[in-house]
Amino acid sequence: MSVLSVKNLTFGYEKDKPVLKNISFQIEQGKYIALIGHNGSGKSTLAKLIAGLLELQSGTIEVFGELLTDKNISVLRQKIGIVFQNPDNQFIGATVRDDIAFGLENNCVPHKEMDAIINEFAEKVNMTDFLDKEPTRLSGGQKQRVAIAGVLAMNPKIIIFDEATAMLDPKGKKEIREYILKMKKEDESLTIISITHDIEEAYNSDEVLVLNNGEIFLKGTPEEVFKDKNKLKEIDLDLPFLMKLKDKLSDCDIDVKDVKNLEELVNKLCQ
């Protein structure tokens, strides 16, 4: 089933300067989509449009078969969660507890049920010991975990990660990635759209969407997209480490075409 369908989307912040040009694509339920491209290629704008944070100018967005309009935006928004890049600027509550509660309050969840929900989702991201801590006492990774809990608590069907790990250190990045995979495992119907610069993450996703200058440059499974390495090089996009290595080895007439991972590569080289 298609959970998200974007048709002929064009958008610009200024007239005659479109950031997105006539974009169309569909996303199936339960998929892990990686949205890649350079800074300024329109990725974040696309995410904001899908989440209903920007007004549509031309083209349509359908969420679960329903056309996104001014009227149903608040209803459809409940199905879409978004985790932003800056850990500080999306922490709204005074403490972890209050921050997770914020979305619940907006959704008019009765007071009696809140504590149970807060505890449940804080546990999912391992933040139970920090419930009464203020954001200044938390690391960037911990703040992003709270943001994830806050979004999950609202029970969305699609979650967008807008470079959610870009400002974190390697440990924080790894943690967040693990939590994303864990929640995907717990609920297979959950659809994830990850805007990322991490080419390895894109390589491990279900589907890759490459945006360049506001247009869809490539689209398909990672195998399909990364097979076309010359096309990716054309727009100067990074390749996964394994592919770069294979590429360079092939240039030296070392045949490693069929290997699927680093282990196989090492074995093949040492044959």
Partner: peptide, 18 residues
């Protein structure tokens, strides 16, 4: 943006945690 994305709508009815 973050507040809006999490369903905050000034003036709309909401429940309270505290």
């Amino acid at each position: 943006n973050a507040m809006e994305a999490r369903g905050y709508n000034p003036g709309a009815k909401r429940t309270r945690y505290r």
